[in-house]
Design a protein around this nucleic acid. Structure first.
Length: 764
DNA sequence: GTTCTAGAAC
DNA sequence: GTTCTAGAAC
């Protein structure tokens, strides 16, 4: 998928929309336009190639210029021509090139025979495609049909495959008022349609991102379990994209947009609004994990988490009353004195908890496979099947694979049937240990390891759920105008990953997110100034500044839109709470979205205008020390978990991402995200500036030494024994087994961080 | 920063 | 034929 910075979360006001209709003759494009234009309060212009030449067919160029004029005039535009292939659409998409215009596609992908019969019947159609030629023309056109993709540059694509879909879309656009905008992404694409896929690479280690603290905010009433019609996330969606009041729930539901519920249920607060996680027993089915041991672990982990999750529920689900794991767990729960309101078991289909069982669960866990792919039977197949391609798509956007013991939170697109029918807003994929020799990564009956992995899996799962609860509960009620936006953030962004902060489902258009209603938040720092006077060493003002501010002597590098993600996080960490490991006044800590080693986190400075090492001056020394200390703290935390790791802390001489960030990276470089020479050399040549050296240089010279980026294309050398390797695969193969000590220079001055605090291999 | 892909390298 | 890199696009 394309990856672009998400500067888009905020609904923009008064933005024209360019809608490119895609459909064969007879698919109903003109009717679509007419119906919307007739009902809409927004000014629309229909650009129809069939009639643009004084009522006769004209050229594509005429259409383009007509559209340009209308858009300049602030009008929204329908491009009413077949647009069946990418090339035909591309020039129109470019008209929306800036952030000021939303580019949508409406795909009228109706059955060919319907289009043909309509074409044959029509007598007064503008395109004058009548009679017997129609069938041949339609068939020929459909043969070369290329369904639009978000990567072409669309912000939103709506697929209509039957009349009901079309009506739904007409309603959506008819009720789109002049100041409204629609959520982005693909909508209505059916399971049998080819969905967009990127090239999948595997073997990534991912982690569920959670705040280290496990706070709970009072929200919802734990006393009632009566299922209600409203969706548990309604309140979070309120005012999303300024939904028109006239929104029609039924048709919208078919379309499955966030706006549906926002419009119709905005003010309902359900008594049953308790965040609830339904989860299957992990690893006990296909992965053949011992049930007794698994039951112990489930109860142990539930007990641990239910204490922290006062206003949330955990529900273990299995299909059958005869479920062995359910009865084992129930027996243990009796002994453990766990509150039956916060944990209980449920017999039923996890994909129909509400519709068939009356149990409202806003989050469900999936016993996933490591590839995070549909199929395979069991819960995984059932959930992917029930959630539709939306889940596959959203999962791919977020994370590509899962290692055992980990979980990945995936917000479920609101077009998913699981969302609309069951009220599920998030799916958490969990991968447990495998004891089945027929499956990958079998642990060969090693239950020491297996139990640990299963514990980790449940911890990751529950922490993922806790982060969702915190996100949803943490929205201040007074700031209703921000709720929709926050919800969108939550929907779109990953819980730990920068990518998702920088990606909004799939659009290319860039949007500026740095203004609007966030002003008040920007000044939250001023409170600390009030409390402590104006004596804070670092410049609190600067972190409030969201504009790039070039200092004297700073390189005036132009940052691409994709490079803004960290900056946006630093300026508005509160909008990405679920994505962050730690937030303080000075820094934010987060997992690198594309970790280049087993552990790789970023300590992000929050100071505005501090984009890279070149911007750092003496006045920032305290900040550098703080960043270093926070980085060390995280390294030590990881070392407690895994003492064999070795960490290095440092900066890239010339980072790709805007906003000063310290890399805290384990020296195994065991990651499928490490793919090329630049990746390797950016961490393993002098281009990587050790934090300790940077602090010294700033202290002594007031500036850091920056190394030439020619280093990035140097030969590949092992970071331990310095042997050279012809390519990345060979290098990776070597480093996976190289036991040499690290080079002498790294062993000095605390450049490497070991579990003991001292290098173990101090002799070379 | 990543993804994609042509074409070089093997 | 397959693997891998490097450059362009985003």
């Amino acid at each position: 998928m394309d990856m672009d910075v998400d500067e888009t979360s905020a609904p923009k006001e008064g933005k024209p929309v360019l809608v490119i209709l895609v459909g064969a003759p007879g698919s109903g494009k003109s009717t679509f336009c007419e119906e919307v234009i007739g009902a809409s309060s927004r000014p629309w212009v229909r650009v129809c190639q069939d009639t643009i030449g004084n009522g006769k067919a004209g050229s594509k160029a005429q259409c383009l210029s007509c559209a340009i004029i209308a858009l300049k005039d602030g009008k929204s535009v329908f491009i009413d021509r077949c647009n069946l292939n990418r090339e035909q659409r591309s020039e129109f998409i470019k008209l929306g090139g800036g952030p000021q215009i939303d580019v949508h596609a409406i795909v009228l992908d109706l059955p060919a025979k319907l289009c043909i019969s309509r074409s044959v019947k029509r007598t007064g159609h503008d395109g004058n495609l009548q009679g017997g030629k129609a069938a041949a023309v339609v068939n020929r056109m459909l043969q070369t049909k290329e369904l639009p993709k978000l990567s072409e540059g669309f912000n939103r694509i709506t697929f209509c495959q039957n009349d009901s879909d079309v009506k739904s879309a007409i309603n959506t656009y008819s009720t789109l008022g002049p100041l409204d905008s629609l959520p982005r992404g693909c909508f209505g694409q059916k399971a049998d349609s080819k969905i967009q896929v990127g090239i999948m690479k595997f073997l990534i280690k991912t982690e569920v991102p959670v705040d280290s603290a496990s706070r709970q905010s009072g929200n919802g009433d734990p006393t009632s379990q009566t299922p209600e019609k409203s969706n548990s996330c309604c309140k979070d969606k309120e005012s999303l994209c300024s939904v028109p009041d006239t929104a029609n729930l039924e048709t919208k539901e078919a379309e499955g947009q966030e706006v549906d519920l926002a419009g119709s249920h905005a003010n309902q607060v359900s008594l049953d609004d308790i965040p609830t996680l339904a989860f299957p027993s992990i690893s006990t089915s296909d992965f053949q994990f011992n049930h007794e041991k698994a039951a112990d672990i489930i109860v142990e982990k539930v007990a641990e988490f239910s204490n922290n999750l006062k206003n949330a529920r955990l529900v273990l689900v299995d299909l059958s009353h005869k479920s062995k794991i359910l009865s084992l767990v129930k027996a243990r729960v009796m002994e453990k004195n766990i509150d039956s309101q916060s944990f209980f078991t449920h017999v039923g289909d996890i994909t129909h908890l509400y519709s068939r069982g009356g149990l409202r669960c806003n989050v469900i866990a999936n016993a996933a496979n490591w590839r995070l792919k549909p199929g395979g039977g069991g819960v995984n197949a059932a959930i992917f099947n029930a959630a539709g391609p939306e889940l596959e798509f959203a999962t791919k956007e977020k994370v590509k694979s899962l290692s055992p013991g980990n979980a990945a939170v995936v917000p479920l697109p609101s077009s998913s049937p699981l969302f609309t029918r069951e009220g599920v807003t998030h799916v958490i994929h969990v991968l447990g240990p495998n004891m089945n020799p027929q499956r990958p990564n079998c642990l060969n009956n090693d239950y020491n390891k297996g139990c640990k992995v299963l514990q980790d899996a449940y911890t990751s799962l529950f922490e993922g759920f806790a982060s969702i609860v915190r996100n949803q509960a943490g929205q201040p009620v007074a700031k209703k105008e921000n709720l929709g936006r926050n919800f969108l953030d939550l929907q779109v962004h990953s819980d730990c990953l920068v990518k998702n902060i920088s990606t909004n489902t799939d659009q290319k258009s860039k949007r500026d997110d740095d203004h609007g209603s966030e002003k008040s938040k920007k000044y939250k720092g001023s409170g600390s100034q009030d409390r402590f006077g104006s004596s804070l060493a670092d410049s609190t003002d600067e972190k409030l500044d969201s504009e790039p501010r070039r200092k004297v002597g700073s390189t005036s590098k132009a940052w691409g839109s994709w490079a803004q993600a960290l900056h946006l996080v630093a300026m508005h960490p509160e909008k990405h709470k679920g994505d962050l490991l730690e937030i303080s006044d000075d820094v934010v800590v987060l997992n690198d979205m594309y970790p280049k080693a087993r552990k790789h986190v970023l300590v992000l400075a929050r100071t505005g205008g501090l984009d890279c090492l070149a911007d750092v001056q003496k006045e920032h020394l305290q900040l550098l020390k703080k960043m270093h200390d926070v980085g060390l703290k995280w390294a030590e935390k990881f070392l407690n978990e895994s003492a064999s790791l070795v960490f290095r802390l440092g900066y890239h001489s010339a980072p790709s991402m805007r906003q000063l960030h310290l890399h805290v990276i384990s020296q195994d470089f065991e990651s499928t995200h490490l793919k090329n020479k630049k990746h390797w050399n950016s961490f393993n040549t002098a281009f990587f500036r050790d934090s300790v050296d940077v602090m010294d240089e700033i202290s002594n010279d007031g500036k850091a030494t920056l190394k030439d980026d020619k280093l990035l294309s140097m030969e590949l050398r092992c970071n331990r024994c310095r042997s050279a390797h012809p390519n990345i695969p060979r290098l990776k193969s070597h480093i996976s087994s190289c036991q040499s000590s690290f080079p002498a220079n790294l062993l000095q001055n605390g450049r490497l961080v070991y579990a003991s605090g001292e290098p173990r291999n101090s002799v070379q």
